[in-house]
Amino acid sequence: MSIEIKVKDKVNKEAENNFSENSFVKPLKDFFEEMTLLTKFAFRFFKEVVKPPYEFNEFVKQSYLIGYKSFPLVAITGLIMGLVLTIQSRPTLAQFGAESWLPAMVAVSIVREIGPVITALIFAGKVGSGIGAELASMKVTEQIDAMEVSGINPFKYLVVTRIISATFMLPILVVAANAISLYGAYIGVNIEGNVSFLLFFSQVFEKLSFTDVFPAIIKTFFFGFAVALISCYKGYNSNKGTEGVGKAANSAVVFSSLLIFILDMVAVQLTSLFSK
């Protein structure tokens, strides 16, 4: 009798497992589990960030690696972005005889949206994958465990410093990228036209307002935080050996990029709500 019950239980369990493995329940369950762990990770960050000791030297080092080292890539992207946007917009404006609006239109597009989002995506690609892979390889090679054993708080040293650096470095990169993009737009305007440097920037600042600049810069703090948080989370919690390193780097970039767009959508909605 007891053997019969055991067999029945086993069959039921197998059926349950098959159902959860093959249906939409498992991915959904995994997603919510992941979200819970990510939220715990974020709470741990906020707890650790206010607690001394503060790793200031590591913060400066990470700022250099995350911010300064990303600048060439961001600068080239920004220059091309401004140039291409200007060249592409000119024919449409020319149809309306509104070519004189080109500097103002390009400036608003760059400062409000394209500058922050494109820079954040480039940042996610370069920095996000770097953080994800670095922390994952440290985890796989048990360096993080070694740090814990030697009395260093690895979370504070590795995660907190990276997240703070990324949060403050991305807005700075965006400001630099916007300036370079506007210079690219100036070159673009002068490919077919003849607009002086002074006139171009006069037209640019004529149409820009604080409601264009501040919300765009504020949202980049969130972009930077999101990229670093997800990348650190993916790297810090990676496993499955060397395979996990690649997976962590890849998923860090994918989820960071997705989160940038989601945050941007929320930021745009909030901006339009408050600017009414």
């Binding site: 700022s63 250099y64 911010g67 600048f71 700075i172 990169l173 400001v175 630099a176």
Partner: peptide, 10 residues
Amino acid sequence: KLGIFVTLSI
């Protein structure tokens, strides 16, 4: 380098 970069951007 970091200081110059941050100062210039700000």
